[in-house]
Write a protein that binds this DNA or RNA. Structure first.
Length: 291
DNA sequence: ATCTGTCCCTGGACGC
DNA sequence: TGCGTCCAGGGACAGA
C-alpha cells in the first residue's frame, strides 16, 4: 500500500513526465466513488493545461496547473501512477496474466482499472492512474481553494519530532499505533511504517499513547524518520501492488522487520513475530523486543 | 473532544 | 475444478 515513501518515490520519478508538458486530452472510466471531481469535468477542465509542478503532502500528490487549478491525487490502497512505457506483472491480474504469453505480458495497455490517463500534446509517454480497489481519489481544486483533506494534515512524517509526538499523546487513551496512523499527527504514516518504527523504538503497538514517555516518543520519531528515509532510498515497499512509475518494484520489503512477518523469527531475537488487531488494522510486533 | 465501528472496493488465498 | 468465504486497509463518516 502506498504510504509516504511510495508516494515520494512516485513523485520523484513521475514529475519529469508531467512538469512542463501540456495535456491534450484525458481518458477516464465511468463515474464512481473514485472521482471526487466527475470524470466529464476532468476531461473538459484538464484539456489544454500545462503542469507546472508536482508536490507531495503526506500521502497526497498535488499537481499545479498553469491556470492556478491544482489536481489532488491519492493512491489509496492499490493506486499505481505510472508511465505508459512501464511494464510490470503487477499491472495485470493473475487471471489475465495466466491467459497471456510472456511477450504479451510486456504490453500493459489501460484496462478497466485504469481510471485516469493523461495524454499530452507532445505524444508518448502518457501518464496513467490505475487503481483496482478504487480507494484512491482524484480531485480538481479551484484556484486559491484548498480542501479539508489537505488542511487537516499534520507535520510531514519526514519532519517528525519527539516533542511534537509527546504533545500529541497527552490525554490520549488510544493505542500509540492508532495515534501514529492519525494523519493529523504526522502526515504520511501508514500501517507498514508505523509497525516498523514501533519495532525499532522497542514500543508495543497497543500501549496507550498517554503512557509513552518523552524519551520513548523521541525514539519513535527517530525510528519513523529513519525507516521512511531508508524506504525512499530503496524505492519503497512492493508488498502488494506498488510499482514505481517506471514499472520497477521497490525493495524495502526485504528490509522490514515485523510487518506481514507473522510467525517468522524476529530479526533481533528470533522470537516469532505476533499479529494482533488494533483499530480494525493488523499490527505486527515482537513480544520480547517491544515493551 | 474523543473514540469506535462501518463502509467503500476487488482480487488473491484458502477450504471444502 | 469450482465455488464460497475471508482478508487486506486509508480515510470519511455516523453515532456513542
Amino acid at each position: 500500500m502506498p504510504e509516504l515513501p511510495e508516494v515520494e518515490v512516485t513523485r520523484r520519478r513521475i514529475a519529469p513526465l508531467l512538469v512542463g508538458r501540456r495535456i491534450a486530452r484525458v481518458q477516464t472510466t465511468a463515474p464512481s466513488y473514485f472521482y471526487l471531481t466527475p470524470p466529464d469535468r476532468l476531461k473538459s477542465e484538464l484539456a489544454g493545461r500545462q503542469v507546472r509542478a508536482l508536490e507531495r503532502r503526506g500521502k497526497y500528490l498535488l499537481a499545479e496547473l498553469d491556470d492556478g487549478r491544482r489536481l489532488l491525487l491519492h493512491l489509496g490502497m492499490t493506486g499505481q501512477l505510472y508511465s505508459s512505457r512501464a511494464t510490470s506483472v503487477r499491472l495485470l491480474s493473475a487471471s489475465r496474466r495466466a491467459s497471456l504469453s510472456p511477450e504479451e505480458q510486456l504490453v500493459c495497455e489501460p484496462d478497466e482499472h485504469t481510471h485516469l490517463e493523461l495524454i499530452f500534446e507532445d505524444g508518448e509517454p502518457t501518464v496513467r492512474f490505475r487503481d483496482v480497489r478504487k480507494f484512491g481519489k482524484v480531485l480538481l481544486l479551484e484556484p486559491g481553494h484548498s480542501d479539508p483533506r489537505l488542511d487537516r494534515l499534520g507535520t510531514d512524517a519526514l519532519d517528525a519530532s519527539g516533542d511534537a509526538l509527546f504533545a500529541a499523546c497527552r490525554k490520549r487513551k488510544i493505542a500509540i499505533k492508532s495515534l501514529l496512523l492519525d494523519q493529523k499527527v504526522f502526515a504520511g504514516v501508514g500501517n507498514i511504517y508505523a509497525d516498523e518504527a514501533l519495532f525499532l523504538a522497542g514500543i508495543r503497538p497497543r500501549r496507550s499513547a498517554q503512557r509513552v514517555t518523552l524519551r520513548e516518543c523521541a525514539a519513535i520519531a527517530d525510528a519513523l524518520r529513519r525507516v521512511l528515509e531508508r524506504s525512499i532510498e530503496t524505492g519503497g515497499s512492493s508488498i502488494q501492488d506498488f510499482i514505481g512509475p517506471d514499472g520497477h518494484d521497490g525493495h524495502y520489503q526485504d528490509e522490514r522487520c515485523v510487518y506481514a512477518r507473522t510467525g517468522l523469527p524476529c530479526r533481533r531475537c528470533a522470537e516469532p513475530v505476533k499479529k494482533i488487531i488494533i483499530g480494525q488494522r493488523s499490527s505486527h510486533y515482537c513480544a520480547r523486543c517491544q515493551r
